[in-house]
Computed example of a mutant assay.
Amino acid sequence: MTTNTLFSTAIAAMDAEAASFGALFGDQQAVAARRLELKPELLLEAERFLDQIKTGRRRLSAFQEAMSSSDFPLYLADSLDRQLYGAYTASTPTWRNYVRAATVNDFRKVKRFATSGVRGILTEVKELEEHKRRAQTEAKYEYAVKKYEAGFALSWEMMINDDLDMFLRLPRDLADSATDSEERFAATLFADATGPNATYYSTGNGNLMTGNPPLTRSNLQLAITTLMQRTDDNNNPIEIDAVELVVGPGLTLTAREILDAKEYRAVAANGDVTVIAGNGVAGNLRVNTNKWIPSVVTGGNAATSWWLFANPNSGRPALEIGHLRGYEAPALYEKLPDMRRIGGGEVPWSFNHEAAEKKIVHVFGGSFIDTRMTIASNGSGV
């Protein structure tokens, strides 16, 4: 074989140059090499060894006395298998389902007016009698939008060293921050440290459930019925087409189980059981999980409080959040570079500090509007 011939030629050459061989490895190794020269079984073993190396069939244990990773502590100190985990997913905004979105012109307070109107049942007017003149009441709501910002700066060295493109997602983080800020701001309108915002939810307003019952199918049905029976200042029924249930993450599964139930059983006082198809509350009802409620409700009722809102697009809303006209969406900015290379070519960092800067600006505000269009419970049972 070709390999056998080459190997034999190499051994013969080494024997012919025994003096040089001995000088390299020592006299005892040279003598041992000459003794191995004329043994064909060792040549065959050497040929088999080389063949297994070429075909990849030689086990790694045959090289354990060769170089290992411990021989290169500096070269292999930094792993070549590196990866960047993505940031946590931002919470999905829900506030537009139960809060009316509006647009305002500037930073001054905006005024929202509501009137009772003159709607009502007509009364009989007898011959030559005059009809009754109706009067109306009015209410005013005010709020102003505010500016909210956040940003970051990256040094030139950080941008050069970013081999995993970690900093490319930072603008997306700013956009998610704006979304989170809106969602939490909405939560502050209807919640406080103990549950439903005590400024607007009370027994006097008729929108705080008696006894603060927990979220169950029967209590939810009672709350929906109460909301559907609302009347205006003239005792006219208020048309409510759809209802939004708002809970924190601690009640999400409970709310889903209530809405997804295919049937329920009603047990009468005498023990009779009535099986009713459907759950009796799912029609025109949607579950909204505001994940920022626990950051607002800090007094222990975050996992039990729940709210119902009439859909804000039908009639008067319970809540309103406004955005500055022309800036309805968050705006992302970057600082213009103030340095360029001699000979041409701008660079995206500053002259003095060699840093690149970006920021986000968002403008919004809001207010509670109508206490009739919502009802809530802190779920404590007291």
Rank of each mutant, 00 (worst) to 15 (best):
E127N: 06
A32S: 14
L42T: 14
A102G: 03
Q64A: 08
L38Y: 14
Y85M: 09
A77L: 03
K146C: 10
P93K: 01
T123I: 09
K126D: 09
T55I: 04
A87L: 12
V31K: 13
L42G: 10
E124N: 07
G86Q: 13
E41Q: 07
D81M: 13
R119I: 10
R96Y: 04
V104S: 00
A32M: 09
R59W: 05
S91R: 02
F113W: 08
P93L: 01
V125N: 00
P73Q: 03
R133Q: 14
E129Q: 04
Y141K: 01
V31F: 06
S116L: 02
E41P: 03
K140I: 15
E47N: 07
R100V: 00
L84F: 06
V31T: 14
T89Y: 05
A144W: 02
K147R: 12
R82T: 05
T137R: 13
P40H: 03
R108A: 12
E45C: 07
D78W: 10
T103I: 12
A62L: 08
L76R: 10
T123Y: 07
K146Y: 13
L128W: 03
R108S: 14
L74Y: 13
E124F: 05
A135P: 08
E142I: 02
E142L: 05
Q83S: 14
N97E: 02
